[in-house]
C-alpha cells in the first residue's frame, strides 16, 4: 500500500536487530521487550497457579518406591515407618502399620445365611469403622440390597431402604461385598499388576502402585471395588490404629479399594469385623482347607449358591437359605 513506508521500515528494523546485538537498545524497545517478557512470566506463573493447591505432594522416596512384591523386607519396613509417620502427621494417631503374610494351609471362605440376615446394616458400618474408609465422600465395601421375595433379579433390589424396623415382611436382604474370586477378572484387567490374588485367596491391592485407571472396577461383575474420587475424609477419633499395608491403612486420592476379608485380622486368627458386628449371626467365616471348620460344615450340609455363577469367577463367598 505504501511502498515508501515499507522501504523506510525495512532498514530501521535491521537497525534494531543490530542494536540488539550491539546492546544499543532504545529505551522504547527495552520497555517493549521487558513488558512482553514480564507478561509472559506472569502468565506462566498464573497458568501454573493450580499447582499451589496440590497438598501432600509426592516425595522422592515415595516416587521411587518399588512394587510390594519386589520390596526387600528392609525397604518394606522403611515404607511402613513412613506410613506411620504420615498417619501421625495427618491424624495425630499413633498407628501400627504391619505387613502380615498369608498363613500356610489356609484358604478363606465366607458363607452368609440369607434366612438370618435382617438387613440391619451393622456389618456395613463395622466395616467402615474397621477399615478406615472415607466417610465423606462415603465409601462402603458392603452393599446390603433389599430384594423382593421370590426373585434374584438385582434390578429389583435397592440399597436405599430406611424403614422404621427391619426385617420387612415382603423382602429379604442380600449383602454383597468382594467375593475374593478364585478366577478374579479384576486382577487380569489391571495394566500395572497393582492388584493380585494372594495364596490364602484374598485379592489385595497395593495402593501405592495403583494408577487409578479403574479397569478393575469395570471388570468386576459384582460391583465390589470402590474408587477414591476425593482425598478420603476420616474423623480423627474414628481412625483404627491397627493397620496393615495391604488392607486398612489410609488410602490416597485416586486409587481403588475393596473388601479384603479384614486380612489384618483374619491372618492373625481373628474373625472379620463385619461378622463380629452381625446381630443375627448370619455370617460364617473360616478356613475351607480345614474339614472341621464352620464353613466346611456349611458347604457339606447346606444348599449353597454363589452370585452370577455363569460369570465363571468361582467366588469364595457362598449364600444359603436355612429354613
Amino acid at each position: 500500500m505504501h511502498p515508501d513506508n515499507n522501504q523506510d521500515n525495512t532498514p530501521s528494523s535491521s537497525d534494531h536487530s543490530d542494536g540488539f546485538m550491539n546492546t544499543k537498545v532504545s529505551r522504547r524497545d527495552f520497555l517493549k521487550r521487558s513488558a512482553v517478557v514480564g507478561t509472559g512470566a506472569a502468565a506462566l506463573v498464573a497458568a501454573m497457579s493450580p499447582l499451589r493447591l496440590l497438598k501432600d505432594t509426592l516425595t522422592a522416596e515415595e516416587f521411587v518406591q518399588k512394587h510390594y512384591k519386589e520390596m526387600s523386607s528392609e525397604e518394606l519396613d522403611r515404607v511402613l515407618k513412613r506410613i506411620e509417620r504420615k498417619v501421625k502427621e495427618r491424624y495425630g494417631v499413633d498407628a501400627e502399620v504391619k505387613d502380615i503374610k498369608p498363613m500356610d494351609g489356609v484358604e478363606y471362605v465366607y458363607a452368609l445365611n440369607l434366612s438370618r440376615c435382617n438387613g440391619s446394616r451393622r456389618c456395613v458400618h463395622a466395616c467402615v469403622n474397621e477399615n478406615n474408609q472415607s466417610r465423606s465422600p462415603e465409601i462402603q465395601y458392603i452393599s446390603v440390597f433389599k430384594m423382593p421375595k421370590g426373585t434374584f433379579d438385582m434390578e429389583q433390589g435397592t440399597r436405599d431402604y430406611n424403614p422404621e424396623t427391619v426385617p420387612e415382611d415382603d423382602s429379604f436382604y442380600l449383602p454383597v461385598q468382594c467375593f475374593q474370586c478364585e478366577e478374579p477378572p479384576c486382577t487380569k484387567a489391571c495394566p500395572v499388576e497393582a492388584t493380585w490374588q494372594e495364596k490364602d485367596g484374598i485379592t489385595v491391592i497395593d495402593y501405592d502402585w495403583c494408577i487409578g485407571c479403574r479397569y478393575c472396577e469395570a471388570a468386576c461383575p459384582y460391583w465390589a471395588r470402590r474408587f477414591n474420587f476425593a482425598e478420603p475424609n476420616i474423623p480423627k477419633e474414628r481412625i483404627n490404629p491397627s493397620m496393615s499395608y495391604l488392607s486398612n491403612r489410609p488410602r490416597p486420592k485416586g486409587v481403588v479399594e475393596k473388601c479384603h476379608f479384614c486380612l489384618h485380622r483374619t491372618r492373625e486368627g481373628k474373625l472379620p469385623a463385619c461378622l463380629e458386628a452381625c446381630p443375627t449371626g448370619a455370617r460364617i467365616f473360616g478356613n475351607i482347607l480345614d474339614p472341621d471348620s464352620e464353613v466346611s460344615y456349611v458347604l457339606k450340609n447346606k444348599r449353597v449358591f454363589v452370585l452370577k455363577e455363569e460369570a465363571g469367577t468361582l467366588p469364595r463367598f457362598f449364600y444359603f437359605f436355612d429354613k
Partner: peptide, 27 residues
C-alpha cells in the same frame, strides 16, 4: 454346635485364641 447358627466372636483360629460362641439366650 457346629458354629453355623448364631454369632461367633474373637478368633476363628482356635490355635491363636478362643472363639466366643453366643448362647441361645444371648440373642
Amino acid at each position: 454346635e457346629a458354629g453355623v447358627h448364631g454369632r461367633m466372636n474373637d478368633y476363628w483360629d482356635t490355635e491363636r485364641g478362643p472363639t466366643r460362641k453366643l448362647t441361645c439366650v444371648e440373642c
